[in-house]
């Protein structure tokens, strides 16, 4: 196995990488706002509604992502809903992202010192204004590093989408493997592709974490 051939394998996996990033990007773009809504609903909404939200979050967190993928792609057709692979993938990933992010957002909001809310109330700021101008900005600073960490994990999990025929990195790698019979180098190439994104991204998160910690 010479280096040139190996880099050839890496190159062939790159289109799959683009698909993986698209899938991840869409899931985060839908999942994070949804998580914010869930987090607020759990604390604010009245009884029956807030149980529904809690159930949605607990299922999204407690059921393996692989099973969620299957539910959308192979499960829904039983009741005559047949989503495309991409739609099923985005739905499953969004559900998963939103469920984990909801916990992060909730605990970030709780981490804002109580005195802040008191000072805002004491000044006569309404609940909505207190939340918007005082609590949320501070909660956001706390939530950003863990949410970025979640994004990186979701990117890694995009590898699962291959089971429902999405042509991301793993799918391409598998076909490449069956074509060349050089499974080991091919999958190591796939590993390298993921690592080349994940390792710099993690370093970025760490440095952002350090910068955010300086301000408050």
């Amino acid at each position: 196995m010479d280096i040139q051939t190996w880099f050839g394998y890496v190159f062939e996996l790159l289109p799959g990488l683009v698909t993986a990033m698209q899938l991840t990007g869409m899931s985060l773009a839908l999942g994070f706002p949804l998580a914010l809504a869930f987090a607020l609903l759990i604390d604010i909404a009245p009884r029956p509604l807030n149980w529904v939200v809690i159930a949605v979050v607990e299922v999204g967190r407690g059921v393996p992502l692989l099973v969620l993928l299957y539910i959308f792609y192979q499960g829904l057709p039983q009741i005559d809903i047949v989503p495309s692979a991409m739609v099923a993938a985005v739905a499953a990933f969004t559900w998963s992202t939103a469920s984990y992010a909801t916990e992060t957002i909730r605990s970030s909001i709780q981490s804002v010192p109580r005195g802040q809310l008191e000072a805002a109330s004491a000044a006569g700021l309404s609940g909505i204004d207190s939340f918007r101008f005082v609590i949320m900005p501070q909660a956001a600073r706390i939530a950003i590093p863990p949410l970025m960490g979640l994004a990186i994990i979701m990117f890694q999990l995009s590898s699962l989408a291959y089971v429902i025929t999405i042509s991301e990195v793993m799918q391409s790698a598998y076909f490449l493997g069956t074509k060349t019979f050089n499974y080991l180098p091919v999958f190591l190439a796939a590993a390298a592709v993921y690592a080349s994104i994940t390792i710099p991204a993690s370093a970025l998160v760490t440095s952002i974490e350090r910068r955010l910690a300086r301000h408050v």
């Binding site: 005195g115 000072a119 004491a122 101008f133 005082v134 501070q138 301000h215």
Partner: peptide, 13 residues
């Protein structure tokens, strides 16, 4: 009724 707290509670951001 304005209130001044022991721990100031200024908005750090």
């Amino acid at each position: 009724a304005g209130m001044v707290f022991q721990s100031f509670n200024l908005f750090p951001h």
